[in-house]
Simulated scan of single mutants.
Amino acid sequence: MYQNILIATDGSELADRGLEHGMKLAHALGAKVTVLSVTEPLDDRARHAASLAGVEDPTASYDASVDEMMKERFADIQRRATEKKVPVELAHEIDRHPAEAIVRFAEEAKCDLIVMSSHGRRGIRRFVIGSQTAEVVTTTTIPVLVVR
C-alpha cells in the first residue's frame, strides 16, 4: 500500500509518538522511511540579541548547535530503525516555514504517506499555538497519518 513513508519530527516527545508509529507501520508494510526534521534559521532579532550579549558569530554558533542536535537525534533514529529492521533515510531542512518544507520535501521525494504527530488542539488554542500538522494536512495532496 505505502512504499515510501515520510515521518516528520522536531525531536519532541510528542513527535516521538509519530516516529514510533510510522516505523511500526513501515515495518508491517515493508516500506522505506524517510525521517525529516525541519529547523528554522536563526532569526534577525535573536542574532542581534546574541551579538549584543557578546557572541562573536551568532549564526555560526547557532548552526553548530543545530548540527550537534541533529547528529544526536539522527543517531537515535538510526538505532531505532535498525532495531525494527526498517530502511531509513535521514534528512534535515532549514526553513522558516516547516509545514511548507515538509510538503515540498514529501513531493520531491515521491513519498506516498506523511506521518506526523499533533496535540489535537482546537479553536483559539490551535490558532494561538499554531499547528504545523494542520497546515500540512490542508496543503498537501499526499495522505497524512496524524498520531495523537
Rank of each mutant, 00 (worst) to 15 (best):
17 R>Q: 14
94 I>H: 01
111 C>N: 15
9 T>W: 07
61 S>M: 04
107 E>W: 00
100 E>K: 14
132 Q>L: 08
120 G>Y: 00
98 P>L: 11
61 S>D: 09
33 V>F: 09
113 L>P: 12
111 C>F: 07
146 V>S: 06
55 V>K: 03
148 R>Y: 06
126 R>L: 00
51 S>D: 02
107 E>V: 07
105 F>S: 06
120 G>P: 01
143 P>M: 11
112 D>P: 08
10 D>R: 10
128 V>M: 11
38 V>P: 04
140 T>N: 10
3 Q>A: 08
39 T>H: 13
85 K>Y: 01
54 G>T: 08
69 M>N: 02
83 E>K: 14
2 Y>V: 03
38 V>Q: 06
19 L>S: 06
83 E>Y: 09
87 P>L: 03
117 S>V: 03
50 A>K: 02
101 A>T: 04
20 E>A: 12
131 S>P: 07
47 R>F: 02
44 D>R: 11
17 R>V: 02
10 D>I: 10
115 V>E: 04
43 D>M: 07
111 C>H: 12
90 L>T: 06
63 D>Y: 00
106 A>V: 04
13 E>N: 09
2 Y>I: 03
71 K>L: 11
94 I>Q: 14
120 G>Q: 01
7 I>E: 09
139 T>N: 15
107 E>Q: 12
26 A>C: 04
63 D>G: 00
83 E>I: 13
50 A>Y: 13
47 R>K: 14
71 K>C: 04
105 F>R: 12
100 E>C: 02
109 A>N: 12
9 T>D: 08
43 D>T: 07
76 D>M: 09
1 M>K: 12
11 G>N: 08
5 I>Y: 03
62 Y>V: 02
80 R>K: 14
147 V>M: 06
23 M>S: 08
15 A>Y: 11
50 A>S: 12
29 L>A: 13
24 K>I: 07
104 R>S: 15
38 V>C: 07
21 H>V: 06
71 K>Q: 13
90 L>Q: 10
126 R>K: 14
12 S>L: 07
81 A>C: 03
144 V>L: 06
135 E>P: 00
125 R>S: 14
29 L>N: 06
35 V>E: 09
116 M>F: 06
103 V>T: 14
69 M>Q: 08
110 K>F: 02
69 M>T: 03
98 P>S: 10
106 A>Q: 04
96 R>S: 13
87 P>S: 09
138 T>Y: 08
140 T>R: 11
109 A>S: 12
135 E>G: 04
135 E>C: 04
